[in-house]
Design a protein around this nucleic acid. Sequence first.
DNA 1: GCCAACGTTGGC
DNA 2: GCCAACGTTGGC
Length: 137
Amino acid sequence: MAHWLYKSEPSVWSWDQQVAQGDKGTFWSGVRNHVAKQNLMAMKKGEKGFFYHSNEGKAIVGIVEVIKEYYPDHTDESGKFGMVDIKAVKPFKRPVTLEEIKAEPRLKDMILVNNSRLSVQPVTAEEWALICKMGGL
DNA sequence: GCCAACGTTGGC
DNA sequence: GCCAACGTTGGC
């Protein structure tokens, strides 16, 4: 089962807002990048991902799960892009900051470190396990 | 189909 | 607020 990482600016859409949606979750719209789109299309229901706060906080704050697979993004006028639905699963006991991730040699190949602009990223099994541990889960 | 110009993202 | 990195656009 694959793992993912979703980036959001808290001023636009925060973890707290995601949690407030409960089990019904929300659609993850607004992706306008083809690599990110490929990642969205590869997602399967039930797969989990990290929720990362960019700009403010710069930390992974919790875990989300895919509850609906790829379908057209109604906010995209061109009709080329789509989205998935995700819901909050559980918060980290403590956030794992970008600083900590950069300081960990085993995480030096993470896309988050090397291509910070990609908004939806795959995470390897090793990275997943390590970051969960760092987050107190 | 190349590439310069421009816009956006996100860390610092 | 600056700027590097990246993606997209449009002229040729």
